[in-house]
């Protein structure tokens, strides 16, 4: 195995040998790897997820704290993305072949291919203090580009100052993540709605004398939503990947930021649990999506 975690816990110095041996046996690093893994699995089911090599706190405690911030970031940006994505997708579906459709689809595919970390870096440079744009445009805002609230406000406290500051710190990361995932959603929304628009019941709805807006809201959108929900659920792994990059760039101390730190210190209990959490997030997202679909589409039955 490359990288000996014990070295990251205890310095390689003879005078620490006793402590090191103790730590190795404490964390079970002296046992064969398969045995370590079986023990890990056993503990997984008994909700004992091990201690971090780093600060010896339970892995679950550390990650629960991080998870909150990651959920805030992913949640905000997903809601933002879905709302804007649906609006853009719907509008370009109606204006199919017109300039708006052409431009939004072009920009969409362009954004779709943009590495999220790079987008984050560019936005960070554009909105930092004394950015180039501030030289050109006097009212250009400077936004916080790192952390999730001002260091001077420590410790975290549920007062208006903290919440407002946390919101400010959330702006850029959420914007980056939204822009990075927006294109996929609006493109699929567009195609899905165009699909629905060719259905006969849409002609029926128009024949009833409904206005285009009514047709869209009552008949097209409700039928375009189910595929969107499945898609977003499928994409959750991708969105999480984006969130990781954003957290690293903006030093936003959620799970992604913690992952990079854990890699640096070879903190395997932490890393393993991060993967478990990631998988769980995807499973939970898909379960939620299934429930949502059940509600959105009467043709789906519990089997």
């Amino acid at each position: 195995m490359p990288g000996d975690p014990s070295l990251s816990i205890i310095p390689r110095d003879p005078k620490f040998r006793g402590l090191r041996d103790y730590m190795i046996s404490f964390f079970g690093l002296d046992r064969p790897q398969w045995e370590q893994f079986v023990i890990y699995l056993q503990r997984l089911f008994t909700l004992d997820w091990g201690l971090s090599y780093q600060d010896h706190r339970p892995v679950a405690d550390i990650l629960l704290h991080d998870l909150g911030w990651t959920l805030l970031l992913v949640g905000t940006s997903t809601i933002l993305t879905v709302l804007i994505g649906i609006a853009i997708g719907a509008y370009s579906a109606i204006r199919r072949g017109k300039p708006f459709d052409f431009v939004s689809t072009g920009i969409g595919i362009f954004l779709y291919g943009m590495p999220i970390f790079w987008l984050g870096l560019v936005l960070q440079s554009a909105f930092r203090k004394n950015s180039v744009f501030q030289g050109w445009i006097p009212w250009w805002p400077a936004l916080p580009t790192s952390g999730y609230y001002d260091d001077r406000l420590i410790p975290w406290n549920w007062d208006i100052l903290h919440v407002a500051d946390a919101f400010l710190h959330l702006l850029l990361p959420a914007l980056t993540l939204s822009l990075g995932t927006l294109a996929g959603i609006s493109l699929v929304m567009r195609n899905s709605l165009i699909d629905v628009m060719t259905e006969d019941f849409v002609t029926t709805a128009r024949a009833k004398g409904l206005s285009p807006r009514q047709v869209l809201r009552r008949h097209i959108l409700p039928n375009g939503m189910p595929p969107m929900v499945s898609l977003i659920a499928l994409d959750i792994a991708f969105i999480l990947g984006g969130a990781y990059q954003v957290e690293v760039i903006f030093r936003y101390q959620g799970i992604g930021f913690r992952t990079i730190e854990a890699i640096g210190s070879l903190d395997y209990p932490l890393l393993q649990f991060i993967i478990v959490i990631g998988g769980a997030a995807v499973v939970i997202a898909n379960l939620l999506a299934d429930f949502l679909l059940l509600w959105l589409d009467p043709r789906i039955k519990i089997s």
């Binding site: 490359p2 990288g3 990947g241 990781y244 890699i263 993967i275």
Partner: peptide, 18 residues
Amino acid sequence: VLSIPWLVLMIVIAARLN
């Protein structure tokens, strides 16, 4: 496989292989 957050997995594999 689809539900594994691929980026994390890649990062961990890459890190493990040093």
